[in-house]
Design a protein around this nucleic acid. Structure first.
Length: 507
RNA sequence: GCGGGCGUAGUAUACCGGCUAUUAUGUGUGCUUCCCAAGCAUGAGAAGCGGGUUCGACUCCCGCCGCCCGCACCA
């Protein structure tokens, strides 16, 4: 028997498999669905839990320098003011209906062209180093083109947030130069709002967190004071975050409710942050490979210096090649001491620590690897999905759908199959083995249908191994057939060898 | 948010302004079967939601919801 890989994984294949086998459902499907929200089914929730557990074990339990945290989803609204999210998420935007360009209202400037005290029209300009001078020049050009007589008054530049409703139809779009196509400024607030307590006036407004990271910063002093940690150390958290995305797209890649795994690694203010940054990038890449993502699909993207947020010293994204393009999977940012400093200012509580070695107080700097569980899950499905042409001994070719998931994260580790269902001897032994395995691993017992069909069923949900109880098991040495998913190879092993294999491969 | 396309069992699909809505696969049950989706029998399972036109709508029209593609957005 031989197998050749077929090319081209499409998102349609992935979405159909995810539904067909109970990995991922659309949220509220019986009510017509709800854009940007998803449910994880029986196999999907196992897979997702395994991804979380692998990360938590490797990141927290197997390291001596990182501790865990679970902070609340709704925090004091001042947290989000201090972090910059309230301001950052509420920028009013202006659309040009003709060119489809979108502008931040506070970066789009306009001015009335006033001649002899009368408004003759408007000019507009995107913010630059010399916005006022440019607008003045534009106004003079406007006057000349329209051959207007009179004295041009000095222009008064205003941005679109200051535009009166009656002015907006008269302001030209920077894209077309013609008025009439700009919309009024509209706010796109990416944070979900809710109200805490019974009153729903402005004083009770709170937000669902758009990231888990602020929990680590806000609880920084608590962890330092109680956790017996010493620099450098990290605080890690796994949890849900919420962003009211304008356009959720690409299945679970960008959704409105998602789960993050974030870690804040605090270092000395004089530490070599670039070296630490690079070490964490390498750690993240190695971890992704450990759960089965192939090197061939991974790459790095270094954010250009000029596009970084002002507080960021450097950000590198680990990218993954999804069927819909190369997209960000894991962002590793060097954020300096910005976040802790912001919270110190806003709360009035110092966030510095005392360093015994230098006898100095300072605010630590931080390296932040932040990744989405859902994006990893989608990546392992995309990377693992394959449709193969399988040729049997008789030369017949048929299709095999297989999900090559790492044993670390596979929802089912082993399927236990009696060769025949109507032989009590076989089923009894198989059930006994199943019960034994069940105490430590996610396993599955299946006696329905021909043995080949049962193998293929397991292939499609990513089960790395099947064991088959046959007459040799009963009558001879107690060994059973171990059938391997990727190679379809079979060999005979003992129960002790099976447990050893699982111990090595499932961690 | 804008423009275009689409919406039929779990999945993939066919046809039709009018009879019990087609087929494959999957799935349940029973039989059979000594290692790769075998076979036999039998069961369950579908027109996104709402409105309109019509004697009659899964089919035509409108709205909403959802999905896909492109643009824009993604602190």
């Amino acid at each position: 028997m031989s197998a050749t890989p077929a090319p081209a994984v499409s998102m349609d294949n992935i979405v159909a498999l995810a539904k067909r086998r109970g990995f991922i459902f659309q949220s509220s499907e019986i009510y017509g669905g709800f854009n940007g929200f998803f449910d994880y089914g029986p196999l999907g929730s196992e897979l997702k839990k395994n991804i979380r557990d692998c990360w938590w074990n490797d990141m927290v339990r197997r390291r001596d320098d990182i501790v865990g945290l679970e902070s609340s989803i709704i925090m004091h609204p001042k947290v989000w003011e201090a972090s910059g999210h309230v301001a950052g998420f509420t920028d009013p935007l202006v659309d040009c209906k003709v060119s489809k360009q979108r502008y931040r209202a506070d970066q789009l400037f306009f001015a009335a062209v006033v001649i002899d005290g009368k408004t003759a029209g408007y000019v507009s300009m995107l913010e630059s180093e010399k916005t006022a001078a440019d607008l003045q020049a534009a106004a003079e050009l406007f006057k000349r083109k329209k051959a207007l007589q009179g004295t041009l008054a000095p222009v008064a530049a205003r941005d679109m947030t200051e535009a009166q409703p009656e002015e907006i139809p008269l302001i030209p779009s920077p894209a077309t130069g013609e008025p009439g196509s700009l919309t009024a400024p509209r706010s796109f607030n990416m944070m979900f709002q809710t109200n805490v307590g019974a009153m729903t006036d402005g004083s009770s407004v709170a937000y669902l967190r758009p990231e888990t990271a602020q929990g680590m910063f806000v609880d920084f002093k608590n962890v330092v004071d109680t956790g017996r940690v010493k620099l450098p150390f990290g605080i890690a958290q796994i949890g849900k975050s919420f962003r009211n995305e304008i356009t959720p797209r690409n299945f679970i890649f960008r959704s409105r409710e998602f789960e993050q795994m974030e870690m804040e690694y605090f270092i000395h203010e004089d530490a070599d942050w670039a070296k630490c940054h690079e070490e964490w990038i390498a750690w993240c890449e190695a971890w992704l490979k450990s759960i089965g993502l192939p090197d061939s699909h991974l790459s790095r993207y270094t954010h250009p210096k000029e596009k970084l947020a002002f507080y960021s010293r450097g950000t590198v994204d680990i990218m993954f090649r999804y069927p819909f393009g190369v997209q960000e999977l894991w962002g590793i940012a060097a954020r300096g001491s910005y976040d802790l400093t912001q919270h110190a200012k806003a709360s009035g509580k110092p966030q510095d620590i005392f360093d015994e070695a230098s006898k100095k107080k300072f605010v630590p700097h931080v390296i932040e690897p932040a990744v989405g569980v859902d994006r990893i899950l989608l990546a392992v499905l995309c990377a693992g999905y394959a449709e193969e042409d399988v040729t049997d001994e008789k030369g017949a070719v048929e299709k095999r759908t297989v999900l090559r998931l790492s044993p670390r994260i596979a929802p089912v580790k082993v399927a236990v199959l009696p060769l025949l269902k109507n032989k009590e001897l076989l089923t009894a032994r198989a059930k006994e083995l199943h019960r034994k395995l069940q105490r430590r691993y996610a396993v599955f017992y299946d006696e329905a249908g021909a043995i080949g069909r049962r193998y293929r069923r397991q292939d499609e949900i990513g089960t790395p191994w099947c064991v088959t109880i046959d007459f040799e098991t009963i009558e001879k040495d107690g060994t059973f057939t171990l059938r391997e998913r990727d190679s379809m190879a079979q060999k005979r092993i003992t129960e002790a060898e099976l447990f050893q294999l699982l111990d090595e491969q499932v961690y």
